[in-house]
Every structure is written in structure tokens, then in C-alpha cells.
Design a protein around this nucleic acid. Structure first.
Lengths: 231, 231
DNA sequence: ATGCAGTTGTGCACGTGTTCACAAAGCGGG
DNA sequence: CCCGCTTTGTGAACACGTGCACAACTGCAT
């Protein structure tokens, strides 16, 4: 398959929405829907139709005026743009509560992110099997990353160990990190980091919740997912 | 304590950063740091100093020129603004892998979001105790929400059950929802929803990872956390 | 008192993201 | 073949978020 020209850079906000469109389109395909309009997709994704069209237009002109978008084709295009034409094995650092839940969560593998390994620094945790993967010692990290060609690491350690985990991941050759620890990770330039901080999410809800009292119900913004990957 | 005037509305992007500043400031306070400059806080938070100053200026003029910000005072002000002067009990729907991990995660309670209850629709899951909380049947949801004055619900169900879970939460009286299911929830106006979608995060990383090959290393944006709460 | 070094608070310009509104284009019926 | 209906793709206006640059102000030393 010929590698096409490097497409125009896609805005971050759009990149964050494409996975949502993708999930919906795959669902629709499963329900035998062959064609969908920007309006229909927008409804299902909870966004504005114009936004859907603009987002999709970054991929190219793949719609048919007067008709809509062919679902299967769009699925293929979005997959290709997001780099989901092949699997991305991930390695999880930290086999505590969260690490175990992540390893046991089938959604990862199903969506193209199989768990290539899970490691912990605690010898006591090593050896148990979670979701079909055996917990190994963190010293094996490099070996796992290199033999399985892992480029994405997941930090699921306590906050105090998170920076060390990130350092080890980077040293092992990982170039993208998904960080669940409530810590700002320092990483070399060129390494992408995204963070998921449950407490932060709750605190944001708390803000709007608190505003609610005394001010009455009011609109509080839309439901985007715009967060950069750091370099 | 006199309730102060309804402060000027704080931009969403700022609201998303305040929890990060707060965490860092609390840490600093623990290390006996009494005063911090916007520059110092910015460094620790991984953002621009001007942004820190602008963010903090929405709370009021609480800094001292030539000196910086008094850590303890700032902690208090941010807490107040975010509505963290009291606890917000949360109820978790879904006692699967993720629900259990969340219930067992002490970080919630520590940060002012004690788990008031965890429920599941599966009778087989009811009764077991996770993180000191007994799993109850989803039919008890309303009772839990009302007796414990819960206003925040967490959806940790499989995708197919998520909308039903959200509906039940809303019916029970919850007004904010944190959704871990990969589904776009439909909720009545006035209900805030934030979503955390692990697969989406990985797919975003995949995009930048994929771009990396052939284009060489390049900056790929910054590490914000701007996501609206829907109304 | 005065000056100086340091830091805040903010006006302004810029960039990014969103939405509207409409021309361009496909489709089907008569 | 043409007409009217539908839906895309996008220019342009607007809203929002970011970062610079600097005046205003504080505290301290002299």
C-alpha cells in the first residue's frame, strides 16, 4: 500500500474527537448502517454538525453531497489517520488496584492496544497473573519493551513512584506515556504524555456543582475532549 | 463567614488547571514552603508563568508584588473557589474491574470525595466489601443518594449499561456524573458530565506516535486539561 | 527618604477552535 | 434533461485561550 503524502496537520481538538466518531461509526456499521450524514453523526457524538464536517474534512473530501458519508469507508480513513491500522502493544507499570483493573480490562486489547506486559517494583506482586498476563519485575521493562516493540507505556503507580516509572519507560524506549498518577511528569522533548487524573475530574465537577447552589441551574460549557500531548 | 459576592465566572481552561495548582501547593505546604512565585508554581505545574498569574487573578488579587503568593492562603482560596471546603460523597455504579479499583483507591476519600456507596445490577456482586464499602443493589441507589446527600455519580459499567446507569443516577437526584464508559451519555439540561475514556486517550497517543515515524521528532502540543462539563 | 531588584496583574496581539451561512455538488423524479 | 431536494465543504465572523511585555507596586538596603 503506497504511503500517501504527509497529510495536513490535524488540529488537536479534532484529533481528540476522531476516536469518538470512530467508535460510533463502528457501532453503526455493526447495525448495518451503510451511510450517515454529518447531522446524524453529530447527534450520536453529542456535537455540532458543522464541527463534524470540518473535522472530517481534514481527512479529505470523503463525503457525498446530498447523501452523507459511507460508514465503512470513513471507519477505514479514521483508523488510518489515527494510526490504528496495526496494534499498539502497551506496557503497564504498577500492578496495584488500578494497574490490575487496566490489565483486566478487555477494552484495551479489543481496541488495538494489547497489554504486552505489566510490571511492578514490589517482588511480592511479581508472578501473579492478571487478565492473562503475568506480572513481571520492573527490571524486565527494557526487555519487554524491546522484544514486543512497545512504544506506549501506562503509569499506574502511586504518585511518589510515578516519575521514576516514567524515567524507566523512557529509558526502555517508550515514546508515549499515559499517566494515571496525580503528578506532573517531566519527560525529554519528543515524548508524548497524556494524563488522566481522576481527582482533578471530580474537582472540576465540584466547581460546577458548587456554582449551582445559589445561582440556579445554568449552562456550564460543552463536553469536549481537548488535551494536548506534550513534547 | 460572610458569603462573598458571586465571583466573576472563571474560564473553563482555568478551572481545569486550578486542581493541579492546588495539588502542588498542598505538597509545597507539606514541605514548609510558605511563599511561591508564579514562576515557581508554573515550573512545578509544567505551564507558563503568565498563565499561572492570569489563572490566579480570577480568584482575586491574592499575590504580593515583589514577593509571590502565600501558599497556605492560596490553598484556601482555591479550595473555596472549587467548592472543596466540604466533602462531596460520590456513588459508584458498577462493581466490575474498574468500579472495584475506584472504590479501593484511597485517593478519592483523601481528596474530599468519599465513596458513599457502590452499586451493581448483578445480584451476585452485591454483598462483597470493597475498600470498606459494601456493594449494594442498584435499586438502593436512590436511597443512598438521598440519605448521604450525594450529588456526584460515577459510571463504571460496561458500555451497554452506561446510559441506564446515568438515567438512574439522574432520577436518584445526582447532578454531576463522571463517566468511564466509552459512550456519549444523554442527560437532561443542567446535569454536568465529564468523561474519561481510556481508549480515546490511547488513540490520541497513537495518532502522534504514528506521525512520528517518517516525520521525525516534533513538538505535538502542550499538556492541558481543558474539557467542558456539559449542561 | 530614595532607589533598586523583584514580582504581580493585565492590556494587547496572536493563535486556535467553533459556529454560521451559503455556494457547490450529487441524486432522483418527471 | 432539467429541477428541486438534500447534504457536503468551506469562507468568514466570532469566541476563547495563550503569552508577551510592561506598568504598578512591594520590600529592603542604604
Amino acid at each position: 500500500m503506497p504511503v500517501e503524502r504527509v497529510r495536513r496537520r490535524i488540529p488537536e481538538a479534532t484529533v481528540a474527537r476522531l476516536p469518538v466518531y470512530l467508535r460510533i461509526l463502528v457501532e453503526q456499521a455493526g447495525e448495518e448502517v451503510e451511510c450517515i450524514s454529518s447531522e446524524g453523526l453529530a447527534e450520536l457524538a453529542g456535537v455540532n454538525a458543522a464541527k463534524v464536517r470540518k473535522d472530517l474534512s481534514y481527512l479529505g473530501s470523503y463525503g457525498t453531497r446530498g447523501v452523507g458519508y459511507e460508514v465503512a469507508f470513513l471507519v477505514y480513513q479514521i483508523r488510518r489517520e489515527l494510526g490504528l491500522t496495526h496494534d499498539w502493544p502497551v506496557v503497564i507499570v504498577g500492578a496495584g488496584n488500578l494497574g490490575q483493573a487496566l490489565a483486566g480490562y478487555n477494552g484495551f486489547g479489543e481496541r488495538g492496544f494489547p497489554v504486552a506486559g505489566i510490571v511492578d517494583i514490589e517482588p511480592g506482586k511479581v508472578g501473579s497473573v492478571i487478565g492473562g498476563v503475568r506480572v513481571r519485575h520492573i527490571d524486565d521493562l527494557q526487555q519487554i519493551v524491546q522484544s514486543r516493540r512497545v512504544s506506549i507505556g501506562v503509569v499506574a503507580t502511586p504518585p511518589s513512584a510515578a516519575q521514576d516509572a516514567a524515567d524507566r519507560l523512557v529509558r526502555a524506549g517508550v515514546t508515549s506515556i499515559l499517566n494515571f498518577a496525580p503528578v506532573v511528569l517531566a519527560v525529554p522533548r519528543g515524548i508524548s504524555v497524556r494524563k488522566v487524573d481522576l481527582a482533578v475530574e471530580l474537582q472540576i465537577l465540584s466547581y460546577y456543582e458548587q456554582r449551582r447552589v445559589g445561582v440556579g441551574l445554568q449552562a456550564v460549557g460543552s463536553n469536549d475532549s481537548t488535551r494536548g500531548a506534550s513534547a
